[in-house]
Structures are given as C-alpha cells and as structure tokens.
Design a protein around this nucleic acid. Structure first.
Length: 410
DNA sequence: TCTGGGGTCCTAGGACCC
DNA sequence: TCTGGGGTCCTAGGACCC
C-alpha cells in the first residue's frame, strides 16, 4: 500500500509578496498585473477572495469587484526561489519527489515510518520544516494515490492536513462534486450534469461501459478516478518520472490590438529568440514550429510547419515563424495575440550536414555564450522577515459525514 | 466576466507506406 | 476498377491545469 503526500502552498504568490512587503498582510491583494491591463488574476489573497475575486478572473473584473484591492505584477524569480526551497525540504523527507507545479508537489512516503513516524506525524514535521525554510504555510493531503492526495490537500486548506485512511477512498470521494476531480473542468462538468451526474458517487455507481461509450478513453479513466485510483494520463505515471519538456512556447497579448506589420513581426522575432534560447538551455532541437494568432473577436488559429532539420537557432525560428505569419495574416487584420510554439524535439548532437553543421555549431556556441551573459543579470539577493502565524490544523477522514468546507476553484 | 502565459494530453482527418 | 487494414507522421483544435 502506497503512502502519497500532496503538498500545496497556501496562496503562494500572494504569501511570497507579503514576505517582501509585510504591509500587504490582511489586505485584499491581487497578483497578476495592473487593474487596467489586459490579463487575468494569477493569485488572490484570502481577503480579496471575500469579494469574489479568484484566479483566472480578468483583472478589470477584479477591479470592479474590489477597487481598493492592491494590484501587483508579481515576481516570478522570487516564486522560483521559494519553490526551490520547498523542494529542498521535500528531498529530505523522501527520495521520490515531484514538483507538479511551482507551488505543489507529490511525495512518495511509503516506507518512511521508521524515519518520520506514521503519516500524520510525518506531515507535521514536513509542515514545520517547510515553514522554517520559507516562512510560508502549506496544506498536505495524505492518501494511497496521487489523485486522492491532491483532492485531500485541497480540502485541507488552509494550513491543514487531511489523511484519507486506506480503504475509505471511495466513501471519502462519493459526496464531493465531480468538478473536484482534477481534469474535470467546465465542459466535462456540464456534460456530466446533462446526464444527471453531480457527485463523484454518482460517477462511481455508473457502469464503465456507459462512461466509455459517452466519453471514450477519458470516460474509462473517470470511472477509475471516481474510486480514487490513479487512472489515465498523467496520474498513471510514477512520482518523479517526469522527463524532458515536450514543447516550449512564448506568446504575447498586446494591450491594444494592432495591425502594424513591423510591430507584429518584431514581436514575433523577439518571441522566437526567447524560444530558441530556452531550447539551447534544455539542449533540445525542435522539428515543428507553430504560429498562433488571435484576433479581436478572440478567434484563434494555429499554423504549424515541420522543418527538414531540427533547430535551436534564433535565425531558423525567426524565419520559420515569419513565413508562417506572412502566409496566414492578411494586411490590415487586427491582432490581439501572437505566439510561437516549438515541439517535436530531438536531442542535441543531432545529424546535421557537414558544412551547415559547422557553421551552425559556431552559431550555437556564440548564442550559448550570450545566454550565459544574460543569466548574470536579474539575480538579486534577498532578505525576509516575519514569523509564522496561524495554527496548523489536522484532520483524518474516517467519517464521511464530517466533510470540510470548500475552497474557490478556478 | 471582455477573457495571460506556459504547459500537458487527447481527438481526428489526411497523407503515405507496406 | 467499388475498395482492407495497420502504423506513423503531420496538422488543427480543444479541454484542462496552475
């Protein structure tokens, strides 16, 4: 029987901002950008959530809901640094760790009782150590699968731990709304509602065949999930088995739509350079280059082209994306968003033609050197203050009647 | 509600090959 | 010369996650 922990930082971006500016504490804070800009909320403080503000909401809407909220751009470097600190702590608790995103992680804690004691004790220690290393709060879900651990950490918010005892998974899940299942979003939820399925228990009671005929492969996975099993897609994979990236992309939304060709093409070139740089950092070469265009009406198209030879060079990406752009944009057409996406990766050392290969190799070396120079900028030392407040709450699921409150979900 | 940016996975049709 | 079937690659789009 596996013991899986899912650890999720509480209001991560906002909490990091508060460390650097303690005057933000206790106030409605919105991370994501200026209240007048195009963009959406990345994170909202619990005070801001009281006004109905939540992540993914347009910034302008958030402003309407709470004009006195403090809007901040956010500091991705700081979030990465704190994420790294969390990761370092987790590594001391288990060799099998996976950061699933910047603010959440899975740990396989199977067989760690001798070192850290039973799950709840270990969770307390972990919570304490994360707090010591970051001055931030987190919530922890404990279960026999990644799926249930994730749902449990959500229910444990905030600053809490919830252990779903082995054998009680289906009972624990049954009363929850289907939307709580990771992977069930707006569309799938509406689909399920339309056939009278509202709670995970309703799903579990259904024949696999019914789900499969209606939702295909995904329906079968859903059936498994409703019982608490890591079924389908990403959940099937072992913790810590995530490999190299499968795609690299950059896109930009203009604050006002534009049909200025020079501006569109220079933006695209800039995005292409950023993509090329990331490819070199990862030691990857991309075969397929994809352009993305979104117009005023939010109509979005993607147009791809596969190159004869995989590349990681600025010039090749710029030229390919410009070709795609010119072939798919009519003069005068207003553009809201432009983006470039690279995929179909080959690893470096590839098989290049000799002449081209030598020239490209010199290019590659020059660009890698430039990347290193750029890396030297932007790193700033930091100090932090403030202690931890709030009491760590702890719950064990054994009685399905004692279900916790819910957290706004995006 | 006027809707970011960076990803993953899935579906589906057509080309092409054996 | 009324029409197979599987495999793989390419392309486009969409749902979903944080």
């Amino acid at each position: 029987m596996r013991t899986v922990f899912h650890l999720d930082m509480d209001a991560f971006f906002v909490s990091v901002e508060e460390l650097f500016d303690p005057t933000l504490k206790g106030k409605p804070v919105v991370v994501g950008g200026k209240s007048t800009e195009r963009g959406v909320v990345s994170a909202a403080s619990y005070e801001a959530r009281k006004y109905g503000i939540h992540s993914a909401m347009p910034l302008r809407t958030a402003y309407q809901r709470c004009p006195q909220a403090i809007f901040v751009e956010g500091h991705p470097e700081r979030y990465r640094e704190y994420s790294g600190r969390v990761f370092d702590v987790l590594n001391r608790f288990s060799p099998v760790v996976e950061m699933a995103s910047i603010d959440e992680a899975y740990l396989d804690m199977t067989g760690t009782e001798r070192l850290f004691g039973p799950p709840l004790k270990a969770a307390h220690l972990l919570h304490e150590e994360v707090g010591r290393a970051t001055n931030l709060h987190c919530s922890i879900g404990i279960a026999t699968s990644k799926l249930v651990a994730k749902i449990a950490s959500d229910q444990a918010k905030r600053n809490g731990v919830l252990w779903v005892l082995p054998g009680t998974e289906a009972r624990y899940l049954a009363p929850l709304e289907v939307r709580k299942i990771p992977g069930v979003g707006k569309v799938t939820e509406a689909n399920l509602h339309s056939i009278g399925i509202y709670r995970i228990g309703d799903l579990a009671a259904l024949e696999d065949k019914v789900l499969e005929s209606r939702f295909g492969k995904w329906g079968l996975a859903l059936a498994g999930k409703s019982l608490g099993r890591d079924a389908g897609g990403w959940f099937d994979a072992e913790i810590g088995s995530r490999g190299a990236p499968k795609s690299v992309s950059h896109e930009h939304t203009f604050n006002e739509d534009t049909h200025d060709q020079a501006r569109l093409e220079s933006t695209l070139a800039h995005l292409a350079e950023k993509v090329a740089r990331r490819l070199r950092e990862h030691g990857l070469k991309a075969r397929t280059i994809q352009l993305k265009l979104r117009d005023t009406d939010f109509n979005t198209i993607t147009r791809a082209q596969s190159l004869p030879v995989p590349t990681q060079l600025d010039i090749a990406l710029i030229e390919a994306s410009r070709r795609l752009f010119r072939a798919n944009w009519e003069q005068g057409r207003d553009i809201r968003l432009i983006g470039i996406h690279a995929s179909g990766f080959d690893y470096e050392d590839g098989q290049m033609g000799l002449i081209d290969g030598e020239r490209d190799e010199r290019w590659r070396q020059a660009l890698t050197a430039a990347d290193k120079l750029r890396d030297k900028f932007g790193e700033s030392a930091v100090s932090l203050g403030s202690g931890m407040q709030g009491k760590f709450r702890e719950r064990v699921h054994e009685n399905p009647a004692a279900l916790p409150g819910k957290e706004p979900k995006r």
